[in-house]
Design a binder for these strands. Structure first.
Lengths: 209, 209
DNA sequence: TGTACATCAGTGAACGCGCGTTCACTGATGTAC
DNA sequence: TGTACATCAGTGAACGCGCGTTCACTGATGTAC
């Protein structure tokens, strides 16, 4: 039953991809190793040829989910008007993030919004992976987020917290109207707010942290 | 081994109180019925004399946690300067919510922040209880939140999402500095933001939804 | 007020089930000659 | 290039454990007379 190195590597990738999807969709605790392997038509035993523990997979799944959304957002941004990261683009990004589609599809959505609740109850390794993910996502907000978030790190953190909060709360409510109100309120709040006096923000590349 | 009606009622209250604390601290899935009963020195079997299922307890625990923090915040507000709900008070409320203490003590903290991640993966009854909780907490924000949140429902939702987001993310990170940055950024964002032109908000009672 | 009996709060063991992890086994893959 | 053998990806059953829930049982409480 041995598989070639290529096949094994592909299996490993499939496990991480499936885990990253299922964890965001149903939570870290509610998805078992058997669920993930089963989704791939494999049995549990083989899992431990690839990972030391479930927690090790959680860490890689968080990394994979983060790469996935970072790439997606960047491709989107380049794809439709390479010249300048315009306000229009900003709004597309915000609209996508604060959409019913995002609320209804955590499995392909932001890992910060999908996992923040669970990660609070997990071990150090998981929290560290989540922290790295947050830092990557904050870079995205700095480069592609609403104008207000380009001003300062504080503005980025504020925008990020409100966006994640809106999506997480929208997912936790049974009231569709309240969910949509939350999304709309945060969207318009972010588009309206303008930081203090003037101090025009540089549009160019922003130093990585 | 039968207990008096009073004793039984007290046991029931103890179960709800303990559950409300443990659920916020360790999550809905990670706390078992046996954990809760064990904390009270009782055995699991007796649980079902008081509740139809674990989910029924989850619903009551959410309600109890909400009442608890609503009462606490209102008493605080009345307690130290009854005359007017002043800006100073607002800042106390914000400071408490966006504090390291709140991040480190979910068991006595905001149920929206403590449970929103879990509730997304739960059944309808739980989501409905959580929705009611959110509505109660939004009233608090409207009455005691930062000035900005008194202007409109959108402002309340925006403030609420950013506050919950900050606390949930702060709890999920292993980086104390990032956690504190999030709290500070949202706090100063909420205190800075002033809604559009002027349109002074009424300070008096606000209609319940 | 006193007695007989029904009620039922809490016990402790058991139910079937799923969890993360381990392990002997399989047979195709990879390697050494 | 061909053969012998070691490796190891994946299988399937088992490990000990904890889960939510059920149930026969207990004895103090509550009630009917």
């Amino acid at each position: 039953m041995r598989r070639s190195r290529e096949e094994a590597a592909e299996t490993r990738r499939h496990i991480v991809e499936t885990a990253s999807r299922l964890f965001r969709q149903r939570g870290l605790t509610s998805v078992s190793v058997a669920d993930i392997m089963g989704e791939l038509g494999l049995t549990v035993g083989g899992f431990y040829r690839h990972f030391e523990s479930k927690e090790a997979l959680v860490v890689e799944a968080i990394e994979a989910a983060t790469e996935e959304v970072v790439n997606y957002v960047q491709v989107q941004a380049k794809g439709d008007g390479a010249a300048q990261p315009s306000t229009l683009l900003d709004n597309d990004y915000l609209d996508n993030y604060l959409s019913s589609f995002h609320v209804d599809h955590p499995e392909i959505g932001c890992p910060a919004a999908g996992l923040c609740g669970d990660v609070g109850h997990e071990g150090l390794a998981t929290k560290e992976a989540f922290t790295k993910s947050m830092q990557r996502l904050l870079e995205l907000v700095a480069r592609l987020g609403p104008d207000v978030a380009r001003e300062s790190r504080d503005q980025q953190l504020y925008a990020f917290a409100s966006m994640v909060g809106a999506v997480v709360l929208a997912r936790a409510t049974s009231d569709k109207t309240l969910a949509n109100d939350l999304l709309r309120a945060v969207r318009s709040g972010l588009l309206r707010d303008t930081p203090r006096p003037a101090k025009k923000a540089p549009r160019g590349a922003r130093a990585r942290r």
